[in-house]
Amino acid sequence: MSLCLGVDIGGTKIAASAVAPDGTILARARRESPAQDADRIERTVADLVEELTAQVSGSGEQVVAVGVACAGFIDRHGESVVFAPNLAWRDEPVKAHLEALTGLPVTVENDANAAAWGEYRFGAGRGVHDLLLVTLGTGVGGGIVTDGHLVRGAHGFGAEVGHLRVVPDGLRCGCGNTGCWEMYASGSALVREARAVVAGGGAHAAYLAGLCGEDPEELDGVMVTEAARAGDPAAVEVLETVGRWTGEGLASLAAVLDPGCVVVGGGVSQAGDLVLRPAREAFARHLTGRGHRPTPPVVVAELGNDAGMVGAADLAARAVGAGPSGR
């Protein structure tokens, strides 16, 4: 059988796997990420490719292509990483370098795009040819599949939805603008709101304050989710607020894209219905033409941290014509 490898290059680790044509992961490997050294990142990827190739060759499998995903801007031809916030790559011809190092065809994709592709092909959006993925983490990332194709954009900047303006003159964002969606609907927003609750003190804040030892700076998203699961009303409310903003932003994107399915991933999505129920309610309420159109389902991502890897591997398979034929 022909396999493709998927590699997810992050700022702290590089994860790689051998992926079967049906999306199943057959072998895994990972390394620390030498994020600040452009050449060493590439050599590390090549090492991982070698390791996995050796692992699967025992069972007669052949690796035919490699798909690489990382956060950042990829040029529209999928040849260079123009800018990667967590890596030393600047206008780095990753495809050419990795092909030289590995001797295999290489595909390069933005991580959220690859994750959207993974969820479209094998995850929560299987078979839905118009799909929107948002990841709620430190910021808000996005990937768009439309009519079975990834939206990379004219310059490789497609589906960068975190800085959509949702509030005129709203909260100041790290990007220099105000009112960006990720100031309201990300994991960072969740923690910021929860810390404000603790800093405000009083009985309302007691549970969260207990979890972080009265120090708001110690509070993180996992604690908020934990508190909400235990029924703490303050934590539930903070998750509801983030969910509501998520749903409102999704409704605007749905007006533009008309997706058949919305997949929510990232750390915040692990709160499940605590965040998704208010998100679905706000989404349905703000969706234009409601009553005259089906409201697309808003579902949690299924592939978790593997989505980018699996998606990148499948995109690599397609690029060499080894993937299962589909749309």
């Binding site: 118009d130 409704a251 605007s252 007006a255 008309d258 997706p259 058949g260 399915c261 703000h286 033409g289």
Partner: peptide, 14 residues
Amino acid sequence: RGRHGLAGEYGHMT
């Protein structure tokens, strides 16, 4: 065109 032919309703972004 989107899933239901409804893509492009830009005017109703909030």
